[in-house]
């Protein structure tokens, strides 16, 4: 099927979030999820899934969700940190699904 201009543009927009993963961007907002053994045990995998899905759903090309294997604060796991170039790191502890959604909404908003 021949593609029209609008279809091509739609494809580009739809894929932008996914493809931006492969472009290194130092100014991207990095959402770092603590995924050490304690993190995973405390449910960090689900938390990350929530954030990734939110970011994906909003096609937020300036947000990168990254896993971190270090256990920084096992007692307060799951831990989510927000890294922005030139700003202080913001750390969220004992994140649950609702909090994760909130965090995602915040970074997506900031990215826009």
């Amino acid at each position: 099927m021949a593609k029209s201009t609008t279809e091509l543009q739609e494809m580009r927009e739809q894929m932008a979030g996914q493809m931006s993963l492969r472009v290194e961007d130092k100014n991207a907002i990095r959402v770092v999820v603590g995924m050490g053994t304690c993190g995973i045990a405390a449910g960090a995998r689900d938390i990350m899934r929530v954030i990734v899905d939110e970011v994906g759903a909003h096609n937020a090309t300036h947000v990168k969700v990254i896993m971190d294997g270090n256990n920084k604060d096992a007692a307060n796991a799951p831990v989510v940190e927000i890294h922005v170039l030139g700003k202080d790191t913001v750390t969220y502890t004992k994140v649950d699904a609702a909090k994760a959604k909130q965090i995602a909404a915040e970074v997506i908003g900031e990215a826009k």
Binding site: T5, L8, R12, M15, A16, Q18, M19, R22, V23
Partner: peptide
Amino acid sequence: GRINPENIDEYIAFDGYKALE
């Protein structure tokens, strides 16, 4: 190293066929 060469969609995602248009 950035796209799957066997998938035209990925080429289009990185502004492929924009120049032709």
